[in-house]
Design a binder for these strands. Structure first.
Lengths: 242, 242
DNA sequence: TAGTGGTCTAGACCACCCT
DNA sequence: GGGTGGTCTAGACCACTAT
């Protein structure tokens, strides 16, 4: 069933993927996972490898562990957004929603002042402009506008931007590494309201993001407007008291 | 030097604390940490234990690892401030604004259903309810509502809640350690609009927070409504290689 | 080539939960 | 008491980086 894409070289990744699939398919919230020792036997790996895979599931909020009792599937309503850089598609899947996309615009344009500055481009350099309506389980979730410097990532076509843009970038050898995000509140305009299926001036969570490679080269600038009634940001913060 | 507080039973915690202290004291940004194998020898533990301790430092953004090269102290300027649990006063000062507070309400009330659940209290247990208008450089920034379980933190008076609530808690021996935050977008009602000096139905960034001590005891539940035109959340997120 | 972090094994003991 | 997750050991090989 889990037809490997050929990229999963590590055992803990293969196990992680297998467990993730099973959680999404057959297990219900609060169902117990097989015990770690049973996974050792079933997958033919060591317990350390099992714990690495389950640990990642726990980090991502898909399961919770209870010492002495077992590991259980988390309640989706309590899934927290982690601080990992994720594409919309990945984010939705981690919330156990099916992502989809409707392309609204895909054009090559000269970079404006703001885009050029954020991407460290010469003003007027060519950028690909992508505007998409993003859906979760078929319902509008956000309107997203993205600018990509073509000189750094190559050209784009409609097929490429149908799914995860991060996958498309990775396919061109461009690996997103980190991003600066600004989260703010706003209200939608008439156009956005129509796309999202809400009344004009409804509240929206706005996320502005600039994505960089490991070398610090900006490869994406994105503005996303999320429906406030369907999306929030959950983070756990710890106190620094040195 | 590392005068144990008596609670650190695990080797990886002791090592984590030792490394954390060294990072804060003698090491500079981008300085290399001792290699994992050297830490094995120096602390007399296995490499798995070393990796657990260093892994926690990496999770918290204090160090970064580079395969084949080493582990290095992270640059503090790239540590996102929003990942730290801060009080309003601390947050404002870090933005170089002067915080102030206007007390709107301070009463002892029985905990409602939601508050009791979030703070793990018996329904009807006594909580202190604090409502404050928070100012930055003299201008309204947010309306904040806080519930505190009096049985865990003692009584409160107007003088105590004039400034930083976290300072007040620390003065009673209650140390906030971490918090779960939910960030969402909404619009203000007429009352909040009047206090914040904006039009009704203006957008606002809403932050719901439950604060815990190190032992996991909930000591504060807070709801804050920030003026959207004066406040945003900035975080740097990094990619987990999928 | 030598050293580093990343992965992995096959054990072990402990603290805790459930019945 | 039996099973679970949490911690820990003492090795090993691999992929990568620096020189």
């Amino acid at each position: 069933m889990t037809a490997s894409t050929g990229k999963t070289a590590f055992k803990h990744e293969a196990l992680y993927t297998a467990l993730r699939t099973e959680i999404g398919a057959t297990l219900r919230p609060h169902d117990p996972l097989p015990s770690e020792r049973e996974l050792v036997a079933r997958f033919g790996v060591s317990r350390a490898t099992v714990r690495q895979a389950v640990g990642r599931l726990e980090e991502e909020g898909l399961v919770y562990r209870s010492q002495g009792a077992g590991t259980f599937v988390a309640d989706p309503s309590t899934i927290s957004k982690s601080l990992a850089l994720t594409s919309f598609s990945e984010d939705m899947r981690s919330r156990r929603l099916t992502p989809d996309s409707r392309l609204l615009d895909l054009t090559l344009v000269p970079a404006g002042v703001t885009v050029a500055r954020d991407l460290s481009l010469s003003p007027g350099a060519e950028v690909a402009h992508v505007r998409r309506l993003r859906l979760a389980d078929g319902l509008p979730m956000c309107v997203e506008e993205v600018w990509l410097p073509t000189e750094r990532i190559g050209g784009l076509d409609a097929g490429t931007v149908a799914g995860s843009l991060y996958d498309a970038l990775a396919g061109r050898g461009v690996q997103p590494h980190h991003a600066d995000q600004v989260i703010s509140a706003t209200v939608v305009d008439a156009d956005q309201a129509a796309l999202l299926g809400v009344a004009p001036y409804s509240p929206a969570l706005r996320v502005d993001r600039i994505t960089y490679t490991e070398a610090g080269v900006a490869v994406e600038r994105a503005e996303s407007m999320y429906r406030a009634d369907r999306y929030d940001f959950r983070i756990t913060v710890t106190r620094r008291t040195p």
